[in-house]
Design a protein around this nucleic acid. Sequence first.
DNA 1: TGACGAAAGTGAGCAGTGCTCTTGCTTTTC
DNA 2: GAAAAGCAAGAGCACTGCTCACTTTCGTCA
Lengths: 233, 233
Amino acid sequence: MSDTASTPRSRAREQTMRDIVRIGREHLATDGAAALSLRAVARDLGVVSSAVYRYVESRDELLTLLVIDGYDELGNAVDAALAGVDPADHAARMMAIGRSVRAWALAEPATYALLFGSPVPGYEAPAERTTGPGTRVIGRLVEVWEAAWVAGAIDLPDESVGPRRMSRDLARIRREMGITAPDVVIARGMLAWAGLFGCTSFEVFGQYGADAFAEPKDLFEHHLRVLVATVGL
Amino acid sequence: MSDTASTPRSRAREQTMRDIVRIGREHLATDGAAALSLRAVARDLGVVSSAVYRYVESRDELLTLLVIDGYDELGNAVDAALAGVDPADHAARMMAIGRSVRAWALAEPATYALLFGSPVPGYEAPAERTTGPGTRVIGRLVEVWEAAWVAGAIDLPDESVGPRRMSRDLARIRREMGITAPDVVIARGMLAWAGLFGCTSFEVFGQYGADAFAEPKDLFEHHLRVLVATVGL
DNA sequence: TGACGAAAGTGAGCAGTGCTCTTGCTTTTC
DNA sequence: GAAAAGCAAGAGCACTGCTCACTTTCGTCA
């Protein structure tokens, strides 16, 4: 691709791109998404503001780069956490995913907010560039659930989860993701997914109240255990 | 208080305040929180920008007014939904709360994002003015759980939910809220609360994917049922 | 009734923002 | 070595939050 060209100019260009993303991440962490300013990035880069537009089309484009960067980092954190867990211990794997999501969110609250908080007004992440890295976490979760289902480790009542039109949607999802787990596993898995991010968001965004808990991790661990049970593990 | 004074001038002032909040809400709905501009509000109000500062201290102050307004509206929506439900049918009451939260969030996504999404950068809602209206929904939920507990309608294992320090925190919460339900009810209730907002946020913020479900309400209903079961109802 | 004083509204101005465009300069390529 | 492409600069436009000196309006009280 472009990095094989490696002319001096293209190498300088890529270095500048990396610098821009790096400085953008710093500003994101310190000032938040809406305060992200291309002019400020340009100042830190030691360059006049208009020069940045040679590299980044717009402020929204920079946000998109940071979104992709954030999804990648979160995905790497989850993968790293999974590396040390027995592939056959499905509950432990789901717990590891949950813990690593929470830990990463607390470590990078601004980036977490950019990915999972309210959308930045007037900005919409271009799906074709963000859905790939954006689905890594749920992808890993689905892998765990599917493996557990195949291994017969999921204990759930074989209940109907909704009207037929919903089963059709779930069947399509099953087909697209190439899994075999039944409706109830997928539906409850999505609840666990939303619950995981609900708990994480409440903690990161301070919805529980300033210091209601001396050790919020205790509460999260309990919630995570219940969520694991919710999917029948 | 001040509305009893009712001098002509104070009445005009209050009307202007209402207009500012109304226009602010309109802009919030159409453009989002970060795009909320005092100058634009002033234009719609038919007044020069600096005049608005006679009524509102700053842009953040306006955001605070909108936050309070939003919490009030959500609280009213929940109360209205509860009005028609049998007080003894605890599960139905919890379902009603959940449905009304979701419905209001879908009807007012921008306000919902302001309340429960990522915090607006550089802005922090002053707790002393927002915690009151901000706790109405969780307050109603706690009422339902407590009533169900007292009525013996909650079926949960009497399990330990975490280390002793967590029980201390839960005991403090129990005391402050004047309830009697045990740790597991409170802890699982908080999970249900976070789960409710996790599901709602995923739907409002489009995390499920553009149109993965023909009728997202089906999925939400299923999730709500599971959440109700999570608290033992 | 008329004068006074407080409140409301004005407009200029500062510092910041995103973004565009022209103008020079440097590097790559032919 | 000349042409083409890439890069940085700086001016400029329209917008933002917010302040301040100023004028107008209006309620109250003598």
